[in-house]
Design a binder for these strands. Sequence first.
RNA 1: GCCCUCGUAGUUCAAUGGAUAAGAACAGUUCCGUCCUAAGGAAUAGAUGUAGGUCCGAUUCCUGCCGAGGGCACCA
Length: 585
Amino acid sequence: MMSEKLETLVREALGALGIEATMVTIERPADITHGDYSTNVALAYAKIAGISPRELAGKLMEKILETSSEEVKELEIAGPGFINFRLTDEAIRNENSKGRTSLQTIYSGKNILVEHSSPNLFKPFHIGHLMNNIVGEFVARAMAKGGARVTTVAFPSDISLGIAKAIYVLQKDGGTSQQIFKDMLASGDFEAQTRVVNYLGECYTRGVALAKENPELENEIKDIAKNLYNEIENGELSSSEGYQAWAQVKTINTAYFQYVLESLGSKLGKTIFESEVAKSGKDIVVVNTPAVFTQSEGAYVYVPSEERKDLNTLVFVNSEGHPTYEAKDLGLIEKKFTEYGSVDLSLFVTDNEQAHHFKVVLDAATKINEEWKTRADRSIHIPHGRMLFKGQKMSSRLGGVPVALDVIAVVEEEVRERAGERTSHLSPDEKKKLVTEIALSALRIAVLRSKPGMNINFDPETSLSFEGDSGPYLLYTHARCASLLEKGREKGYEPKFKDMPATDLEKNLAQFEYELSYAVTNFAPQKLVTYLFEVAQLFNGFYGNTQIVSEDKENSEHYLAIVKRLKAVLHEGLWVLGVSAPERM
RNA sequence: GCCCUCGUAGUUCAAUGGAUAAGAACAGUUCCGUCCUAAGGAAUAGAUGUAGGUCCGAUUCCUGCCGAGGGCACCA
């Protein structure tokens, strides 16, 4: 990568001046007209060198010029002592002639697990899951792009006191022999399945409310939970009604989950149910008490050390003897690190309201032994924010906690309105596919243009405008490129860079690898999104005042080479963001 | 009460401690339609919550205050 070559040059120059460089940063100047890359080392090391930054920059420049590679056209000192590098036109053309970008990053060759999009057995896939999927899909693809072997994992919640409450309501309603379930089996279509899943979600909320209002139900619900835990732990297929209902719900929900993920253009590799790690999680806690955990009021808790003011005591095994989410996460960590080969990194994406929970779990894990400490060190929580709604359309169409598919449906409707006659030439199937692709691009880009962890405000009418900084804008630019290339082919033109001075657009396009690499290494989708907007805008400006495909073959072929490069950059960049780019729209 | 996250144009978001070089987009005010997809382009105006501190240099780091969101033992 070019920036790495420059870093070496700078490092050597510093060395020649007797300065041992710890940190050498090569960055992209805010404005490309100031140079392709720049470094601030002269400012950073001026104190050590005992001379002024500009003076040091001058000396460094001399040294760099002595060894400089043929790809560097010129150097200049700017501002308080920055050194700007300008590359030769040829170096830029070579970069832009490259095919698929393969990155060498800190993740190359690593075995990485990415957990995201975990559903709840008794909840429809809602807006929070959608947020999770968008961030999770980026993380998984970024790691893959960074050269890692990635296994994606879903960790569905299928056992808890909350689920016991839902089962209680379900049973009272008549269990799975109710009409709604029969209808679903009879029709087998997704609509019917969705109705069932929505009903199950209702059972959950009703169960929670019921338990709160009627404390006398506590024992009955606890019995359901207890039976469930016992039956799962003993591994015997019980014939109890509660267990049967639970097993059926699990089948239904799993199918629904698969379908929803497919609709999102996402997919997950492995599934680890919470019930699979309940027993092992509990055992880990019990075995390590009192060494790590403490018994208190009939429960097993973890009490963090005094210095960790940011951590609180949490219950790992409750007084009923059931593992809480905390213990199950320990079970999950054990399973991940024992059954998935030699795991280098275990990333898990969740809502940031769980940040504290994971800090405590990992802190506890660190205390168990050396092996667990390694596991904890390799486990990284990636939090995402919430999706908030502002637009009237959203709040009126989607009450309470919006279901993901409803959110997408609303955005799709918006897309259809804006498309108008534009898609009339397409077949119904193509049209549907295109509308979905555009809607998903709008959603994914709206989320990923911000730093992960931030809440995002979502309004399909304004902030999720289909103009400007939006997914559709990038898709449109990509489709425009495809259309131009097609037109070029018809003329018999070959996209080919000619010996012409590199434009700002070309210079920016040459920096794709640098930006992509940064985004991948730092889990920074917003960096990549910003970059894609930059090049798309530069190109659209160029397009606005230049005839790309004209009778002038020489220029046309050069322009088409730029178009080809931009299309590849957009396609590849969007892929990492989880967005598919259609050829036409 | 304690802890965590966040406060940048009217709005939604950018900016590894750096350049009188804080970028976009939407909304606003103008303009571009015999021309490759106007879901486009050109022009214009507009911002670092507040008070200190560290630093050659602070939107960025530290402290106080103000404001928003989240968490704080048997939910996930």
